[in-house]
């Protein structure tokens, strides 16, 4: 059979040139793109005034319909004057802004803007009036942060809404405190300092920067804890674990017992 096919397709090298052509085409396109494409890194690190200008253009195009042409706010959205770059960066990196639809609360989703545009927008919002800047965490600061202290502060200040394990919880009238499992340390710091939506604001006089980093470290730990026992089952505690044991474990045991019984009958 194969012999016949081979004999019939005499010019059998034909597919190879076609593949080569496609590959070559791809390489050419990739090369052109590399030459033409904008360098996000280079633009991001450009001078601040240029970034702010770029942010203002983006703002007028994408945000001003609700927040006002100069971020002064409208009856649909709050003013952004004085909220600081941290607030803008938090809202944009967590995808809460731009708001997909009005509702009780903005939900976390994939960011709409690419990082360099978020940087520009945050710089512009931060330039409107003094406000909390985008926090940065040094490696030394992160390593020195006291996990136990962070946990204590978290339980004292955050756990009432976000729950002791950072799983979030219900608030009034359809709102809820979100789960923190996806929050990066920087986002956690930004939330502490800016109080997104209904969250209270915590100033550096209440919780200093080292303490805030400790809280962020605790959030990272508690939402993604090591699971030496295997699957964490959502880290919801003994109830789902018991459920699994009863539904799967005990069913298996019962099935095994039935099987043994049927074998002996």
């Amino acid at each position: 059979m194969s012999h016949v096919t081979n004999a019939r397709s005499a010019p059998r090298r034909r597919p190879l040139p076609a593949t080569l052509v496609v590959l070559l085409g791809l390489f050419v396109i990739a090369g052109v793109w590399l030459l033409v494409a904008p360098r996000s890194k280079a633009q991001g690190t450009g001078d601040n005034a240029a970034t702010v200008t770029k942010g203002r253009v983006l703002f007028e195009r994408g945000c001003s319909s609700c927040h006002g042409l100069h971020g002064e706010g409208t009856n649909q959205a709050p003013t952004l004057i004085g909220v600081g770059a941290a607030a803008a960066d938090f809202q944009l990196t967590t995808g809460r802004m731009p708001l997909p639809a009005p509702g009780a609360e903005a939900e976390r989703r994939d960011p709409i803007y690419p990082p360099e545009q978020i940087e520009a927008l945050s710089a512009y919002v931060g330039s409107l009036a003094p406000g909390p800047p985008i926090p940065s965490i040094g490696d030394q600061q992160w390593n020195d942060a006291d996990l136990a202290e962070g946990g204590e502060l978290f339980r004292a200040n955050c756990a009432s809404c976000h729950q002791a394990a950072g799983k979030g919880g219900a608030l009034t009238y359809g709102k809820h405190a979100p789960a923190l499992s996806e929050a990066t340390p920087v986002e956690a710091l930004e939330a502490i300092r800016t109080g997104p939506e209904n969250m209270p604001v915590f100033s550096p006089t209440q919780i200093n920067d080292d303490q805030a980093v400790a809280i962020a470290k605790y959030v990272q730990f508690v939402t993604n804890p090591p699971d030496p026992g295997g699957a964490g089952l959502g880290h919801l505690g003994p109830i789902p674990e018991g459920l699994v044991i009863w539904l799967i474990g005990m069913t298996g045991v019962a099935a095994a017992a039935l099987w043994i019984g049927s074998r002996q009958a």
């Binding site: 009432s160 809404c161 919880g169 608030l171 009034t172 009238y173 709102k175 405190a177 109080g195 939506e197 209904n198 969250m199 209270p200 604001v201």
Partner: peptide
Amino acid sequence: GLYERTTQHLLCP
């Protein structure tokens, strides 16, 4: 302990 700063609600858990 559950304070909502825009609606000014205090919610008892």
